[in-house]
Simulated assay, not measured.
Amino acid sequence: MPIRLCKIALTAASVPFLLLVVFNNITDYGSNYAFVEGVLKMDTTFEGNGAMWRSIDSPWVYHVFYATIICWEFVSMVILGMGVLRLYKARGKSAAEFNKAKGLAVLGLTVSMLQWYLAFLVVGAEWFLMWQSNSFNGQDAATRMFLTMGISLLFLISKDSELES
Score class of each variant (00 low, 15 high):
D43N: 15
F74I: 09
V36G: 06
E73M: 15
I3Q: 11
L87V: 08
V123I: 07
L104V: 10
L153Y: 15
N24D: 15
R91K: 04
L114T: 11
V78N: 00
L147M: 10
I79Y: 12
L147D: 03
Y88A: 14
S158H: 14
R54T: 11
S158Q: 00
K89M: 02
L107S: 07
N99M: 10
F120K: 13
S112D: 03
I151K: 09
G103E: 13
L153R: 04
V15E: 10
I69W: 00
T27A: 05
M149L: 15
L10T: 07
Q115A: 10
Q115P: 04
Y29D: 01
Y62H: 10
I151L: 02
K102W: 03
W60K: 12
F98P: 06
D57N: 13
W116V: 09
Y117M: 10
Q132E: 02
I157W: 14
L147G: 05
A13F: 07
F74T: 09
F128M: 15
N49G: 10
A105M: 08
D160T: 15
V84A: 05
V39L: 06
W60L: 12
T27P: 13
V61M: 00
G138W: 00
Y88D: 14
V61N: 09
A90M: 01
T44R: 03
S152Y: 15
D57S: 08
I26C: 13
G50T: 05
V111R: 11
A96R: 04
M52P: 10
T27F: 09
G124C: 14
Y33W: 04
L153P: 13
M1H: 03
V64Y: 00
V15T: 11
Y66G: 03
V106R: 10
L154A: 04
V78L: 01
V64I: 15
D160N: 13
T11C: 06
R144I: 02
W127K: 01
N24L: 04
L18D: 05
K89W: 07
D140M: 12
V15M: 12
E164P: 04
Y66S: 08
A12D: 10
A90E: 06
N99A: 09
K102R: 00
P2D: 05
N134M: 11
S55K: 07
Y33V: 09
T143N: 06
Q115E: 12
L118E: 09
S158T: 01
G50P: 05
E162G: 00
E47L: 00
K7T: 03
Q115H: 12
A51S: 12
